[in-house]
Nucleic acid binder design. Structure first.
Lengths: 223, 223
DNA sequence: AAGTAGATTGAACGATCAATCAACTTTCGC
DNA sequence: GCGAAAGTTGATTGATCGTTCAATCTACTT
């Protein structure tokens, strides 16, 4: 895309700021820390960004650019089944929780609750990130066709999956345990099983291939 | 409780800090702002609290104290039906979103993502708040008895309800619209309908009284 | 009435915050 | 190879950060 025409210094600032905002939050991250870790002088940063707020905007735009290539596409490459993709995506976030010892979750979710109130532009971009995430999952659900009841709004359901992810991550980070996240995903899976069972009951086409729902590995109960 | 033996100045500091941390977040709230709005001098604050971090701990303990009386008990007073209580509680959060123009959601959820990583004590108390919330809802679900399938873990389901609330609020705040929250609650309601239908199908006792699920007012679709 | 511990005052501290800017170097069109 | 634009340097700014503390006031004990 336009990544080729992105100045290396600006890219380094952006990536460093994105990481630090993710790790520590926006207000807790000092500009001096960004400068040190990016190996850049203050003048350079303010050459590319009018201020810290605009840097946040740049970071959020950065997240919009990288979401599909580093999140959706890898999932699509590994899993073919539309509904399987949904739970594969959730599994990715689960792995992230473990890999970073419950210190990191979803970068957008963090910023959403911290900076959404002020700064209209930041809120708009956070909402854009959410919307893109939902639309990608909505496309997967649409591809599931009549495996889900026709009455179910696909985008509503996709939004509910994002809800499950964000809410589950929030609790698991506080508990420093996978239990809440796994519990939420297990309930979501049970909901999907019910939806698929309902769709299988009132079906018009494709008489064979009546798949048994919930074939993937369900997360272990208890601790 | 011990509220009677709480010094008025300390109480005022606590309430002001709780409100400001809720409205602006922990890092974004300066001590000077707390002092000004509480009408207190710095020395008084540091007489009661060793530092800003311990003030946060005090605020989280404050939330633990007030959760049941200002959240659960009013719901229990208005709604008798155990499952109805669950959705009445969610409706409360919904009303809060509207009342504060999507600027405020759940105070614990905000702090969970902002300060949970550092400060072990704060994380512990955030987790305690979540746990108390879940346990209260779990008791409601337990009271629902065989209206829910026996196979469903009540506490897991309660955790999933908290997930729905937090995730829905996060999205609605970013979107400044009730749609994501309503969508999430609608999906949760559909899940509950499926669970109740399943429980009604394989029932041992109480032959009559087969209630039709989802009798309460479902949130309106669209805007 | 004297003594004392607790509560309150508010000026001041050093550290850090985001941001500035004039001087300097590099890159690039022509 | 020249001039201009773009990029970089880093010391420095004023504001604000969380915190301190000696002095003063208040309420209760003896």
């Amino acid at each position: 895309m336009e990544n080729t025409e992105l100045h290396p210094t600006k890219a380094r600032i952006l990536e460093t700021a994105a990481r630090l905002f993710f790790e520590q939050g926006f207000h807790a991250t000092g500009v001096s820390t960004i400068l040190r870790e990016a190996g850049v002088n203050s003048g350079s940063l303010y050459h590319y960004f009018p201020g810290k707020d605009e840097l946040l905007v740049g970071v959020l735009e950065h997240y919009i650019r990288i979401m599909r290539p580093i999140l959706m596409e890898p999932v699509e490459a590994v899993v073919e089944d539309p509904i399987g993709r949904v739970f594969k995506l959730l599994e990715r976030y689960r792995e992230g929780l473990v890999a970073f010892d419950f210190r990191l979750g979803c970068p957008i979710g963090n910023l959403a609750l911290e900076v959404a109130d002020d700064h209209a532009e930041a809120r708009r971009l956070i909402n854009q990130n959410f919307s893109n995430w939902i639309d990608a999952v909505r496309d997967w659900l649409a591809a599931a066709g009549d495996r889900l009841p026709a009455r179910v709004d696909r985008r509503q359901l996709a939004s509910f999956i994002l809800t499950t992810m964000e809410g589950g991550i929030m609790q698991s980070r506080a508990a420093r345990s996978l239990d809440p996240f796994d519990a939420s995903v297990a309930q979501l899976r049970a909901y999907f099983d019910a939806l698929q069972a309902e769709a299988a009951g009132s079906q018009t086409t494709s008489p064979s291939h009546s798949c048994s729902p919930s074939d993937s590995a369900a997360p272990t109960r208890g601790r």
